[in-house]
Design a protein around this nucleic acid. Sequence first.
DNA 1: ACTATTTCCTGGATGC
DNA 2: TGCATCCAGGAAATAG
Length: 278
Amino acid sequence: MPELPEVETIARGLAKRVTGDVVESVWLGRKKEPLKSSASAITKALEQRRIAAVRRMGKHIVFDLERVENGVRSGKAATGAQWIVHLGMTGRLQVCEPQTAIDKHTHAILRLSSDRELRFVDPRRFGRLSVAPAAGFDAGGVEPLEIELDPFLKLFTGRKTPIKSALLNQKLLRGVGNIYADESLFRAGIRPRRRASTITREQLGNLFVAVKEVLKEAIALGGSSISDYVDADGREGFFQLEHRVYGREGEPCKACKTPISRVVIGGRSSHYCAKCQK
DNA sequence: ACTATTTCCTGGATGC
DNA sequence: TGCATCCAGGAAATAG
């Protein structure tokens, strides 16, 4: 389940592999769920465009595209576009040789001028493909690694929703998902059910630090590989080894040995230590 | 404006 | 062994 650190890792890997390549043609599958923009809009935005950059915004992967004319850049920004990929739960972007067997759940294939293919595969179809005008994509929310303390505190003032739900709300912070919300709350010593507005300024300050720490550490370790997550080069991440609460229900807290609790908040399982988190 | 709930989807795990 | 059921979860839609 790719969240910010996994998406960052994937985007960096893809940037290395496909930046500068040109999309010669596009094939899209018949399933409609993965397409947030129309098939024709996606095809039109991608074909005969050079991939100028690949980067992450929240949990989205953004491909900046520029028009190719006679093999050279047009230079006119307005002729560009963006291809936006959200991996959902099980989405993967693979760069492979054209002869590589096509996975059953392949929804898009981009033929590249380097005689390779960029494929979007997603069994569960929670992932989404869309296009936007050049520099036009709005991912909503603020990047957690860029936000400063005061705006961070303001995100939560007056909110009655549980802090866990607020952390998952992409319109506030973008990129934090279930794993990193639980891990951040553990490090900050805050129970996931606490109403955001009731949390002290000091505790929110701890959360501010915790969110950034957790995300940075996870990026450094290539993300968390649970279920079958691998990055663009097929490598697993290692942050799952650092999880202190996520997926550890009943196991002893690494700080105090109390068994880790699991509750459901907003339909999401939430893990915490009842002794370390208040 | 905000909050809570439901829905989408399939593979793997679990239960009988 | 086989079949049914449950669960994972991001975000959009819906309802209040």
